[in-house]
């Protein structure tokens, strides 16, 4: 029997800013088909991990494999990416539909222009995130939650097998959050893999089935039931007590 390679495999990944380590020797495997949360305190290197995998930061050491093949410009195209909402200028003169269409800009060469299939794909993604009514809005008119949904839709049209999301629920209201979680579930049902930076420890067990606990080095990773233990959380967050007061196992849905 041939075992399937993991969606993402990170080996000995070390990233430094000058001589200050941001990630120390991280080994992480993300099996295909899981929803994995990356959890850790501020400055733990969560965004750095995502950016290093996406090739946006040069690691000091280590390797990244995507579906069993070394990550390069070609492999990176197979990853859908949801950056932090604050990473762009929302006053840019463009519409919601246009931003979502950017998810398909990398298909085809210099001469290829958007065709009807692209347009349909964009419309479907907008419907998935409940934004079809706002498709022709200028992006500066969107709320934080709507901006986040636009980014999610843009990742959806990338039609990837692996999605990396940097705080997809940041600044999102509760209702939107639920509908976005439903989108993630649907991705999982389609056999896709999601790795998302997540801030809220109370909802993490409910939204995700796997977890990676990160604080510069990887503390633990694995299925939620085993890895998301109080002991591991204490090690990850140290003295700075996180906002879980009840044992996380009881809040898990």
């Amino acid at each position: 029997m041939q075992t399937m390679p993991p969606a993402l495999e990170v080996n000995d990944l070390t990233v430094a800013y000058r001589d200050k380590p941001v990630l120390w020797d991280v080994d992480l495997q993300v099996p295909t088909g899981v929803l994995m949360a990356v959890v850790g305190p501020n400055g733990a290197g969560k965004t750095t991990l995502i950016k290093a995998v996406m090739g946006l930061m040069q690691p000091a050491a280590g390797s990244v494999q995507v579906f069993g093949e070394p990550a390069g410009r070609q492999q990176v195209r197979r990853i859908g990416y949801v950056p932090q909402r604050t990473s762009v200028d929302w006053d840019f003169p463009t519409s919601v539909r246009d931003v979502v269409a950017m998810g398909r800009y990398n298909r085809g060469g210099l001469w290829r222009r958007a065709d009807r299939r692209d347009a349909e794909r964009v419309a479907r993604a907008l419907a998935t995130v409940d934004m079809e009514d706002l498709a022709d809005r200028q992006i500066s008119e969107l709320s934080g939650g709507q901006q986040q949904r636009v980014f999610l839709a843009r990742a959806l049209v990338q039609d990837s097998d692996l999605y990396l999301m940097d705080e997809p629920f940041q600044g999102v209201d509760a209702v939107t959050e639920q509908s976005m979680v439903a989108v993630l579930r649907r991705l999982q049902e389609q056999g896709r893999t999601v790795l998302a930076v997540h801030h809220d420890l109370r909802t993490a067990p409910a939204y995700f089935d796997w977890v990676a606990l990160l604080n510069v080095r990887l503390i633990a990773s694995g299925p939620m039931a085993t890895a998301f233990s109080e002991c591991n959380l204490r090690e990850t967050f140290g003295g700075s007590a996180p906002e879980w007061t009840t044992p996380p196992a009881t809040t898990a849905a």
Partner: peptide, 9 residues
């Protein structure tokens, strides 16, 4: 608009 996303894709 989004240089990081461009590089990532």
């Amino acid at each position: 608009f989004d240089p990081d996303f461009a590089r990532a894709t």
